[in-house]
Nucleic acid binder design. Structure first.
Lengths: 214, 214
DNA sequence: TAGATTGTTAATCGATTAACAATC
DNA sequence: TAGATTGTTAATCGATTAACAATC
């Protein structure tokens, strides 16, 4: 089978942002947009925008530009937003709670099916109508409910073990909020959100900026 | 005044990760480490590690390597972790709540001083001992308490206005969780955590991986 | 048709990696 | 001193930008 050329992660990282801006344009009734116009709104180069879109095929038309609605839909498809993803959250604390709200509010397609915790006090409580279950029931739940993705929203202690258990029962996508680099097989996708690293970056830029500018 | 050469954001993004690994090594009693050894643990090239550290001066010693404790401290300083930062959180929902826990647990230096919300039901409740105040009191609070940083943990509607108000009363660092690209002056640092974009990236990689591998 | 704007190739820029002299 | 490993320069690689022919 011919290997499709790999798209760089730099491009992938920009796609959701295009998607967001195109969604807004669409909602504002804008029908067409040129790479030049989009570049001004998004603060990017027109060249980069055209290169990015062309990784996935010719969505535009010479002399016209891009059809906003079409492009929006295509990028949505590329991102897999036309499919449903069944998700569980490990950790029913404030973060797990926030993420559960998040997923359902923001986009259809990411379906919050289950939630697990080790804390006895949380087990049995409900998050968005979903009962928090004990960790022991996780594997069975994943298999019986065809879960695709798991969110790790527990402290770093325990996260590695949970990841191993998730991988062992076939989970192929992990949204990881624990401060640890998970070791998983090649065919498992991990997306890290390391909040403390983000905060440190803010701290660096803040402290550096103070010296230079202003 | 001589302009220090600007360090690239690619390097800055890696610093917190170095910091995390060095902290672990330190806690495990490791005294020295070579760029080669560190590269194996962190899954990077030794060359990149040496280049990265050298942006900030020579922390190592030929023939010996790097002193773990010293390097850990130096990177901490570079990241501004030796200073205290006074922070407020806008939005006392689950996310704001999660972040408040987060900051205090993870690192000293990021001090959670205040929290604001428009929701009448939340005003007067406490998060980690801090009372949630109405939005009207934000400006006075920032000035009276010498707040450095603000966390925007509210939905995108309203986020732009809040950012303007923060900038207007002198805030120079914003940790932004709203799905919007804030427009702020050059001397204000924004660090975005766009959770939905992260989730979409996971979705893309998951759906693409399924086709290629496995 | 003429004008506009894409798709795509070529040039540039920046970041990563390799190599090695300096030096502990 | 010899060996190890940094600091740093040079080479490579990849990503971004510029340019322009293709084409709607």
């Amino acid at each position: 089978m011919m290997e499709e050329r790999e798209i760089s992660q730099a491009v992938i990282t920009r796609l959701p942002r295009y998607f967001r801006y195109l969604g807004e344009l669409k909602d504002n009734g804008v029908e067409r947009i040129s790479s030049q116009e989009l570049s001004e709104i998004m603060n990017a180069t027109a060249s980069q925008i055209r290169q990015d879109f062309n990784n996935f095929g010719g969505f535009g038309q010479q002399g016209y530009g891009y059809n906003v609605e079409l492009l929006y839909k295509e990028i949505g498809k590329i991102l897999g937003l036309d499919r449903q993803h069944h998700m569980i959250i490990i950790g029913a604390g404030n973060l797990g709670h926030a993420l559960a709200n998040y997923m359902n509010f923001e986009r259809r397609g990411f379906i919050f099916d289950g939630c697990f915790d080790i804390n006895e006090k949380l087990i049995g409580t409900k998050i968005r109508g979903i009962e928090v279950l004990p960790m022991e029931e996780m594997e069975d739940f994943i298999i019986q409910n065809n879960i695709d993705m798991a969110v790790i929203a527990i402290p770093k202690v325990g996260a590695a073990e949970v990841a191993d258990r998730l991988v062992a029962c076939g989970i192929k996508a992990i949204w990881n909020f624990a401060h640890i680099d998970l070791k998983v097989p090649d065919n498992v996708t991990v997306e890290n959100v390391h909040l403390s690293e983000s905060l440190m970056k803010l701290s660096y830029n803040f402290n550096t900026a103070k010296r230079n500018k202003n």
